[in-house]
Computed example of a mutant assay.
Amino acid sequence: MPSSETTPSRKDTVSPEEWQLRVDLAAAYRLVAHFGWDELVFTHISARIPGKEHHFLINPYGMMFDEITASSLVRIDQHGHKVNADDNDVNPAGFTIHSAVHAVREDAQCVMHTHTTEGVAVSTLEDGLQPLSQQSLFPLSNLAYHDYEGVALREDEKARLQADLGMNNFMILRNHGLLTTGESIADAFLGMYILQKACEVQLQAMATGQKLVRIDDSILAGIQQQASTVTRGLGGKLAWPGLLRRLDRIDDSFRT
């Protein structure tokens, strides 16, 4: 069973760039746990390591999200197989969705996937995410849907998922969950934060049983026309440093 306490430090064995990537990715895992978006040891956040090898970082199988550290993250190839023999094992099947996105989206350094109650609930609604809040406008500016095809293990599903995602940064996987991509780990995380919040607001509003006021289509159209600017840098330069400070106050072991 993998354990952060028995994982040797990787800081002196990787480049400074990879180490910073590891710290940020470990922080993202801890933040997912902090906000209650994790599902035991399931779901994943992946990050592309710069370089021609097309390697990625992902969580070791069996480690809780609030246990992830920079050193415990596993370097894998594009097929989901670990590169370093002494690393903890991973779940190759868990990388299926991520590998599909990374294969066609060079701009997506990070891919985040969650199974939150609110995200799955909205994914079951025929009309999906609705323009009911300011938070919903950002995902709706470039939101894709992918129909459920069973547990995502089949190679032939990748092409359909890739086609459905296109160049969007937000995706609702029908009857399954949420997915975001970003040019940085911070951007993918902030995208997920906004998408998750939009789902939470929608469900609470629907639960009142009262008639809902939708945001005017003209406002949504304006946001969609500006999608390349309103969804770029979703707070990475502002919110991310503060989130790291919050983690440091709670438990800074993610940096080890």
Score class of each variant (00 low, 15 high):
Leu178Gln: 04
Ala188Val: 08
Glu149Thr: 12
Gly182Tyr: 01
Ile215Trp: 02
Glu149Phe: 11
Met192Trp: 00
His146Met: 09
Thr181Glu: 06
Ser136Ile: 03
Met171Val: 10
Ile215Thr: 14
Arg214His: 07
Ala198Tyr: 02
Tyr148Trp: 09
Leu195Trp: 06
Asn169Lys: 05
Asp217Gly: 12
Leu132Pro: 00
Thr180Phe: 09
Gln202Thr: 04
Glu157Asn: 15
Ala152His: 08
Glu157Lys: 13
Cys199Glu: 00
Arg154Ala: 15
Leu125His: 09
Ala152Lys: 01
Lys158Glu: 14
Lys158Ala: 14
Phe170Leu: 04
Ser141Phe: 00
Leu190Trp: 00
Met206Asp: 07
Leu195Arg: 01
Gln135Pro: 06
Asp127Trp: 14
Tyr145Asp: 00
Gly166Leu: 12
Lys158Cys: 14
Tyr193Leu: 13
Val201Gly: 00
Tyr148Glu: 04
Glu183Ile: 11
Arg214Asn: 07
Leu178Glu: 01
Glu200Arg: 12
Ser123Leu: 11
Thr180Ile: 10
Ala188Gln: 08
Ile185Trp: 01
Gly128Tyr: 13
Ser218Phe: 10
Lys211His: 10
Ile215Leu: 12
Ala188Cys: 15
Asp217Arg: 09
Glu200Asp: 14
Gly191Phe: 00
Glu200Gln: 15
Gln204Ala: 07
Leu190Gln: 04
Asp187Gly: 05
Ser133Met: 08
Asn175Tyr: 15
Lys197Asn: 04
Leu153Thr: 15
Leu137Asp: 05
Ala221Leu: 10
Leu143Ile: 07
Ala159Arg: 14
Leu220Met: 11
His176Thr: 05
Gly209Val: 03
Gly128Leu: 15
Gly150Val: 12
Gly182His: 04
Pro131Val: 10
Arg214Cys: 00
Asp164Glu: 12
Val201Met: 01
Phe138Thr: 00
Asp216Lys: 05
